[in-house]
Design a protein around this nucleic acid. Structure first.
Length: 244
DNA sequence: TTGATTGTTACCGG
DNA sequence: TCCGGTAACAATCA
């Protein structure tokens, strides 16, 4: 809704005044993502780089735009629409060189057509680190978050503690393909859905999953173990996901 | 009011 | 150098 339009920028919380001035009045050329990083490209080789982190939200609306709700860090306004970015982890303006540095440190993004999965497998197959940690390392593979990590490994029958170097090329290919399918579905449905035939539920914040946050494995009815990986909760079925 | 959380980074010690 | 752990930060909702 902003693409191709000249954008006025406001920073209601006063935290973005310097960067906002750089892109104010410029045309928005493109909106693109690398992993969880969002980039609004503007005329003059400038890009607005957003990372929503755990809590960030993007609110969109038509003109006339409503008053800012909560901690709006930047507001982009065109003739027809407004976009508010609330509570992002990152909100900054980058030039082309800075954007190139950002993209260079992000691993292949499972949702990008130009992604090279071999780059991810090279890192994984050379590492002693558990695959559960590696899938969360955005410099190894980009786009998978905490819920998807647990769900993908369960679907593939691989325990999160299996070292990267023990992941075969075939197993990696399955992880990659499953990630592409699940994240693409999630994007289409605007919900995390990892259950076959699942639909977005209002019951638990638009997610429909197999074992994340569960205590019983839906496949074998065995107990689901909870662990902490990279400081985040992860789950596995010790029966369906053998450690070797 | 409290606690949990779809995330990242810096820093430290082994 | 690699790797794992911890803290800090952030905003919202139940």
């Amino acid at each position: 809704m902003l693409k191709g339009k000249r954008v006025a920028v406001a920073s209601p919380q006063g935290r973005f005044a310097a960067g906002a001035a750089l892109i104010d009045g410029r045309r928005c050329l493109d909106i693109e993502a690398w992993g969880k990083h969002l980039v609004y490209r503007f005329e003059g080789e400038l890009a607005l780089h957003i990372h929503l982190g755990l809590f960030g939200r993007i609110r969109t609306g038509k003109q006339p735009v409503k008053p800012p709700q909560g901690a709006v860090r930047v507001r982009l306004i065109s003739e027809t629409h407004g976009v508010d970015i609330n509570g992002p982890n990152t909100c900054e303006v980058l030039n082309d060189a800075e954007l190139a540095m950002l993209v260079a440190r992000i691993g292949p993004d499972v949702l990008r057509a130009d992604a090279d999965p071999a780059l991810a497998f090279d890192r994984i197959s050379a590492s002693r680190t558990g695959i559960g940690l590696l899938l969360m390392d955005q410099s190894v593979i980009a786009g998978i978050g905490n819920i998807y990590r647990t769900e993908i490994l369960w679907r593939q029958g691989i325990h999160p503690s299996v070292p990267g170097r023990e992941i075969t090329a075939k197993a990696f290919r399955n992880i990659w393909d499953d990630s592409v399918a699940l994240l693409a579905l999630g994007m289409r449905r605007n919900a995390i859905i990892t259950v076959e035939g699942g639909t977005a539920s209002r019951a638990r914040y638009r997610e429909r999953v197999n074992i994340f946050g569960k205590t019983t494995c839906p496949a074998c009815a065995g107990p689901v173990t909870q662990m902490t990986l990279a400081g985040r909760k992860a789950y596995a079925c010790e029966i369906c996901q053998p450690r070797t």
